[in-house]
Each structure stands twice: as C-alpha cells, then as structure tokens.
Design a protein around this nucleic acid. Sequence first.
DNA 1: TAGTGGTCTAGACCACCTC
DNA 2: AGGTGGTCTAGACCACTAC
Lengths: 254, 254
Amino acid sequence: MSKQPKYRLVAEALRREIDDLTYPPGTRLPSENDLSTRFDASRNTVRAGLNVLVTEGLITSSQGLGYEVRSNEVFELNASRFENLDFPQQGDAYSTDVKHAGRRPSQTFRVEMQPAPPAIAERLRVETASTTVLRFCHRFVDDVPWSTQATYYPIWLAEGTRLTEPGDIAEGTTRYLASLGVEQVGYFDEIDTRMPTPEEARLLEVGAGVPVLTWTRTGYSTEKPIRCTVTTFRGDLNRMNYEIGDLSARNAKA
Amino acid sequence: MSKQPKYRLVAEALRREIDDLTYPPGTRLPSENDLSTRFDASRNTVRAGLNVLVTEGLITSSQGLGYEVRSNEVFELNASRFENLDFPQQGDAYSTDVKHAGRRPSQTFRVEMQPAPPAIAERLRVETASTTVLRFCHRFVDDVPWSTQATYYPIWLAEGTRLTEPGDIAEGTTRYLASLGVEQVGYFDEIDTRMPTPEEARLLEVGAGVPVLTWTRTGYSTEKPIRCTVTTFRGDLNRMNYEIGDLSARNAKA
DNA sequence: TAGTGGTCTAGACCACCTC
DNA sequence: AGGTGGTCTAGACCACTAC
C-alpha cells in the first residue's frame, strides 16, 4: 500500500460517491470551498482532485455554476447498414437513423473545392493536393453538437454533377451516384480514437475528458475508390456497431 | 479576439512547436523552470499549460526526466477478418495478426468461473449473475501493454469442455468450438471509446490523455449467442478496420 | 549532488451566474 | 451582492533520475 497524494484521495472519494449515486447524474457536487473544508485541503488541492474526474469525463464544470455529474445517453449507429442500398431509406442515411431513434436531427452544410489532404489522397488514389470536392456537414441531435462529417469526391467523378453544387441531394448521395452509373459496391472502414484537437473541441463543444471517435469510410466501385468520408463523433455520445455474417439468431429474438 | 489566459498561450506556443517539429516525437521539452522564464509565468502556470498538452495526449511527463513528445505508431486490426473461418490462421487470431506485422506478441492468461455482469448477461441471453466461464488475456506487443481481452462463455456451452480448463487452446477457440459442433456463423460488434478507469489505466499503463477503445463482439451460432468478447485497447496504439462488400478494386492495387 | 517533475499551501483578483 | 469556478503567484518540501 503506497501512500496516495491528497488530491487523489479527494478524487477517489468523489468517484465512489458518484458511482454509488450519492451524487446521481445531473446533480451538482458541493462547492470547492465546501470540499476544501471537508477534506482539510487547500482549494488548489481540491481543484486538482476535481480535475482528475473532469479529465476522466465523469464531471463537468462551469464558471458560476459548479461541478455537475455527467449523464450520458449514447446513440447507436449501425455502420454495416449505413449507406447500404439493401436497406431502403428516405433522404440521407444519418437523418434516417436519428429520426428512427425518436430524436430530432439538424445540420449545417457546405460544399467546397479543396486540395486533397495526404490521408485523403492516399485513400482516393489521387495525387496529394489534387482537387477534390468536399461536402461538409456539422450535425446536431436535439440541438446538441453531435458529429462532423467530411466527404471528399475525386474531381474526375464529381465534375459536372450535382455533387459540386451546394445544397442537399434529396435522394441521398449513394443513390444519386448509382443513378450516374457509379455504384458503391464495397467499403473499407477505419475506426480510431483520440483526444480532440482545439478545432474539434470547438465544433463539438466537448470539454476536457471526452475523446472523439473517428470513422473513415472509403467507398469503392468495382473499378476504384469513389469517395472518402471522415466522420468525427463525440465519443461520449456515440457507439458504433457492425452486423456481420448470419445473425438470424440475434434478430429473431430482438 | 478574446484574451487568452496565460497558461493557454503557453500550451498553444508549445503545441505549435511540436507540430512544426521544433520538438520532434521522442525529444524532451525544456524544463518547467526554463519555460517559466521564457513565458514570464510562475511555475504553476507553466504546469497548467503543459497539463493541457498531457491531457490531449501530445506529451507525457515523468518525474526526474521531464516532458517528452509522444510518438505514436498505430497497429491496424482487421476486425472483419478476425476469427473468420474463411481466412486460415494458426493459433489464436491475435498472435497471428501481430506476428504478421513483424512484432512480437506475448500474453498472460487465466480462466475463471464468474457470475455474468449485466451487460454480458444481456448479450448472452442468460440471467444476470448466472455462471459463465471467463477466459481473460492481458496482451503485450514487444513488451508494451497493448490490450485486455475478456471472453465470456455461457455455462451451458462451456461445461465439460476444454474451455473451462486453464491453458491455451492451440487450434484457437473458434475452431475448437466448431469441432464441438457449435459454429459461429455471425457476430455483432459494438465499438465505443472513453477515458480509462483507474483499473484500465493500470493494466494498460496509460497516463492521462489517452482514451481506450472498447470492442465488444457477441458471437452467434444459428441458434443463439455463444460467447461475448470484450477487448479494451489503448486508443493511441490501435486502429480497427472493417472490409465490407466487394473490395476487389481495393485489393487489386494494394 | 544537482536537476527534474510531483504535491501542497495561502492568498489574491477576475469572470460568470443567480438572486 | 454574494457565491461559484477560473487564473495566477511565490514559495515550500518531496520523490525520482542521472551523473
């Protein structure tokens, strides 16, 4: 048993009390001054302890209000059905999923011509910095910032199509592409996680202690890569899933 | 332009210098005292700035040594091939993947009888706290803690089989199950991310600023769920991927 | 032993929110 | 106005690493 520093004891004590619902999600912790008295520690030390829990994503703080215990409700995104033409949908795949969950989706949208960043160029098999069409979405669920999505199309595909025009494509881009004779027959998904960059923290309104989940989907026709979509989620609000193989046993009882 | 607090200016200045390779990965930053002079700030303020970068996972600190810029090399795990009987492997799927990448895998292993935790019970469709066989792995790559893996088997399946015995199953559990007449024909994968619990931080030796990636795979026979595997990765060292549909265009050129 | 980060204190002033 | 967290300081002592 090694001696714990005082600020860790503070963090552990509060963590236990959050776990056992002494402080349920959504409620506020005692003020720094109260905790300082309780633990016989300076305010700075109490702050260090609270900061541990903020960094773990257990609580948040706001000036003038106090520390609040986070409540997290996660949204499930079925990646293997997403954009799959075998599952009929209306409009874009994202709105469909969110509405289906009884939530209200909204988004801001813009289209740009952009030189391909190296990671995108590699996946689309085009030259780095060659022109691509970037369709960018900033998405909200019930007005809470939820995710950003950037889809890059190579210029050889997008040129002269509605993909270069600002404004939505009502039937969904996957269907629109199919109607142009470019069918997405397979995709390669990459998933990783990291702490948000300052830019991401701003767009997703996440504080310290909340990682982001990055989902990079490269879509292929039978010939070559046709687009690359990078979606960045708030890690605390999202879970992804894949259904693979024969799941009749699962779906039978569900 | 709102005025930034001093500790953020410190963080930003150092972040820029890390980005532009003034301090390349693996090198050390100047000491707190040096930075304190440079930024005309107290040591505490410099520490606050450095802490921002630690929390973002950009740098690490160790007592007596200083602050080091992290270098990250990620390992790609192909989840859609993993455990798939169509792709021949020797031994367990994990070691195969790691060796294939030219790295050296090692692991510690144990088998326990455990009451099913609620999340597992639900996925296996057994009563909460009913008995399960837990096969637990703590995995290392080149002696760096990499991931933990806990696989739960319902007792109706595991009883009287080698699954309940400590010790490896040379041909791999997926094959062994198949030889028992229980074939895994599909699986449901769930992926999420969060900051590590203290227990996970200990096992994976991650400090602040590194999220974990959790991968929960529930395997199904044609009849019912047969096992549930929860893998917890260091988020900074791992990326998962899925190949779905027809990727002949991708694999042709790769 | 010298230099590094780790912990802790006591107190100051500011910014934000609620009443 | 009063309470909350946010920032910052100056200084103390401890623990670890290197030489």
